Amino acid sequence: MKAPFNSAAITLLSATGLIASMGVALAAVSLGDNLGTTEADIRSALTSQGYTVEEFETEDGKLEAEVMKDGQEMEVVIDAKSGLVLELELEDEDDGDKDDD
């Protein structure tokens, strides 16, 4: 004889799975995120989300961080005044240096 599942237990398990999957999704940087306006703040925000900051530079009022996570390189462009993420660019392994067009 099978024991019936308690609907509250099923709801709790479903909610736990949803929250866990949201946590994974929230761990990635997205357009519009506020990472801060200083290099230290931005580095801290990115590393807390699991990124390794490989390079950091300031150019034309924008802060640019080259980061690595899970073997994928990405450039994150942040507005220097607001701290908001303006651009995310995944680096293509076959592309090499993107300035060599």
Rank of each mutant, 00 (worst) to 15 (best):
M1C: 04
M1N: 08
P4E: 14
F5T: 13
F5S: 13
F5N: 08
N6C: 06
A9E: 14
I10A: 11
T11V: 09
T11I: 09
T11G: 01
L12R: 11
L13Q: 10
L13E: 15
S14H: 07
L18W: 05
I19W: 05
A20D: 01
S21Y: 07
M22W: 10
G23D: 04
V24H: 07
L26D: 07
A27V: 02
A28D: 14
V29K: 08
V29S: 03
V29T: 14
S30D: 14
S30Q: 15
S30C: 05
D33S: 03
L35D: 00
L35Y: 00
L35K: 00
G36A: 06
T37K: 02
T37F: 01
T37P: 00
T37D: 00
T38P: 06
E39T: 06
E39M: 06
E39N: 09
E39Q: 15
A40P: 01
D41I: 00
D41M: 13
S44Y: 03
A45L: 03
A45R: 10
T47Q: 14
T47R: 02
G50V: 01
Y51C: 10
T52A: 15
V53S: 09
E54W: 02
E54N: 09
E55V: 05
E55R: 13
F56T: 05
F56I: 03
E57C: 03
T58P: 01
E59P: 02
G61N: 11
K62I: 01
K62M: 10
L63Q: 12
L63S: 00
E64F: 02
E64L: 12
A65V: 04
E66F: 12
M68A: 11
M68H: 04
K69A: 06
K69E: 07
K69R: 15
K69W: 01
D70T: 08
G71L: 07
G71Y: 09
Q72E: 07
M74P: 00
K81Q: 11
K81W: 00
G83F: 00
L84K: 15
L84Y: 00
L84Q: 12
V85K: 04
E87V: 03
E87L: 14
E87S: 08
L88M: 08
E89G: 04
L90R: 04
L90N: 06
D92Y: 06
E93G: 02
E93L: 06
E93P: 12
D94G: 09
K98A: 12
D99E: 14
D100C: 05
D100Q: 12
D101T: 06
